[in-house]
């Protein structure tokens, strides 16, 4: 299945002049090419978006409306797991859950030392490392 389009190919496939596609990009209706320069390419994302724009136009929407509506909230990213260590009263350290085991081991060692220090000196809390 095709995954990359030049502007000329994109124009031909969706039945829109290249100038119109550039106009849509300038108006914020469509993202720019994936790669700029001589090898500027467009992806399936652009094909789908152009089809969507045409559909909305057929339904009576103006370009300005479509552009305004496309500024929708950013989709939620995938959740990330974090480990939480309470080192002392008011002191918390968080580690991302997918760190490499060798790294976690070294950090845990460092944290352990830090905890020892904190207990000895009984420093002020409300510190977040």
């Amino acid at each position: 299945m095709k995954s990359e389009w030049t502007l000329a190919e994109l124009a031909e496939d969706v039945g829109l002049p290249a100038r119109t596609i550039r106009y849509y990009i300038a108006r914020g209706l469509l993202d720019g090419p994936e790669v700029a320069g001589r090898g500027a390419v467009y992806s399936n994302r652009h094909v789908e978006r152009l089809k969507e724009i045409r559909k909305l136009q057929r339904e009576g929407r103006m370009l300005a409306e479509i552009a305004q509506a496309s500024h929708r909230p950013v989709e939620l990213p995938e959740p990330e797991a974090w480990w939480r260590y309470s080192l002392a009263d008011g002191v918390v350290v968080e580690l991302r859950g997918d760190l490499a085991p060798w790294r976690v081991k070294r950090i845990r060692k460092a944290l352990s030392e830090a905890m020892t220090h904190l207990k000895e000196e009984d420093t002020d809390g409300n510190m977040r490392v």
Binding site: L7, R19, R22, Y23, I25, R27, G32, G37, A40
Partner: peptide, 11 residues
């Protein structure tokens, strides 16, 4: 002249 990003359209 060299190929680059497409020009930005201004009406």
């Amino acid at each position: 002249d060299q190929a680059g990003a497409p020009p930005v359209t201004r009406i």
